[in-house]
Design a protein around this nucleic acid. Structure first.
Lengths: 255, 255
DNA sequence: AGAAGGACCAGTGGTCCGTA
DNA sequence: AGAAGGACCAGTGGTCCGTA
């Protein structure tokens, strides 16, 4: 029953994704989430009213009692994913939360979705994406992985990068931030610094570093990470290390 | 005086580009062409009226008598590049025409422009294009190479690809089409077939073929060439070799 | 306050079609 | 008729900000 839609991926403590897909993954791919999304999807930017109607129609039977839906609010809105909390490696999140193993698992899923998109493109003789593009996110929705979306994945790319490039440091950071009771945002911010240090050791070419790693190469280098590396390479003084704003438009001469 | 704006490139029979830049290339990069383009450029899509006004203002002194401008029409429109004709390797085009050596030279110039754009991007710590993108065409305009434009370059990419991948075949094709008095369009069409043959020999992966060649790797594989390779790999029968339409939207399932 | 993600927007790849 | 290229357009990368 606990099969994932993308492929049988063995991982523990995935929580929300699994809850929601119980009794859905098996049903021929026509689960509630997928219906919602596919129904609203064709070409037009979806208007708000549409969305709600669709959700009301096919809600309240399959997701009910599944473990975490229809919060206390008595409403019928589509559920968001539970927020992430800082967990140690291997630790399951408690309550209506998702852990960081689950976060990283989503990046692996995206990789598998990309591979599928690439295979389809090759079969058809179409141009073949080398990165996780909009097309891949659209495909994710289509196959029912509606908990994957672009803003979320882009938001945490550098955290996944640290996990790929230096798992020990990544694990240590998680433990330390968990212990200190820091929130996800603080942990996320803290992931920049060790990455910049890695870049420093390797000649500052963050693109080359991403591209040299097979699982990381499919992700665009986040703007802020690129900017931090650039700033640090030049006067490391002027930059308050991982300040929250290398930020606003380092005034930009365009052709 | 015959310096090019991009770099001193040694090539013969360039005709129009050289004519037009005589007395302009030396003037600090502020020649007529550049003024026209830079003037109309900032952000807004240029409206027609604007364009004409700008041209009228700074026309009629530098280009006049330069060798091929202000055709017989007595008007003040910006000149187009002379059309290409099929020339043999090394042959200069006569009259108000440009030869194929000049065409291929434009691809080399784009490569140099890309390298400049890449260097600037690296200096600034910005993302660095690996292909000839819109940014490069914009840069070409900015540095005064206004005879380079996207539709033209994309139109003939596969001709340049043949020149890169099999110069002998490319040369033979030029001679044969010149001899038979064929026009440029016919020559251009004929360039597909030997490319498909090359792809066939190398396992049909036209993207890999482009990427393996240092000068070709910076160009996007043209849609039609990709389609022809795909079609030929499958039932070679159903496709009238280089038909003018593999073409219209090989009905396309999108995610 | 902290976080998830729909939706927007500037600039892209691609090429049509009004122009000469 | 043959050809050059301005200009358009669907879908992209990037991320803000209204939402919960």
């Amino acid at each position: 029953r606990n099969r994932h839609l993308v492929s049988g991926y063995a991982i523990d403590s995935l929580s929300q994704e699994e809850e929601q897909e119980k009794e859905v993954a098996g049903s021929g791919g026509g689960g509630t989430w997928e219906v919602v999304v596919v129904g609203g999807r064709k070409k037009q930017r979806r208007r708000k009213s549409e969305k709600k109607v669709v959700v009301e129609v096919d809600h309240g039977d399959e997701l009910e009692g599944g473990g975490g839906d229809v919060d206390g609010d008595g409403g019928y809105e589509r559920q968001r994913e539970h927020p992430f909390i800082v967990t140690e490696p291997g630790e399951a999140a408690r309550g209506k939360k998702n852990g960081l193993d689950y976060l990283f698992h989503l990046y692996e899923q995206c990789r598998e979705l990309l591979i599928q998109v690439q295979n389809i493109a090759k079969e058809r003789g179409e141009k073949c994406p080398t990165k996780v593009t909009n097309q891949v996110f659209r495909y994710a929705k289509k196959v029912g992985a509606s908990y994957i979306n672009k803003p979320k994945m882009r938001h945490y790319v550098h955290c996944y990068a640290l996990q790929c490039l230096d798992e020990d440091t990544s694990n240590a950071l998680r433990r330390s931030f968990k212990e200190r009771g820091e929130n996800v945002g603080a942990w996320r911010q803290a992931c920049y610094k060790p990455l910049v240090a890695i870049a420093a050791r390797q000649g500052w070419d963050i693109d080359a570093i991403f591209n040299a790693h097979p699982r990381l190469a499919i992700w665009y280098v986040p703007t802020k990470l690129r900017q931090l590396c650039h700033a640090e390479r030049n006067g490391a003084t002027a930059v308050p290390a991982v300040s929250s704003s290398v930020s606003a438009k380092t005034d930009h001469v365009t052709f």
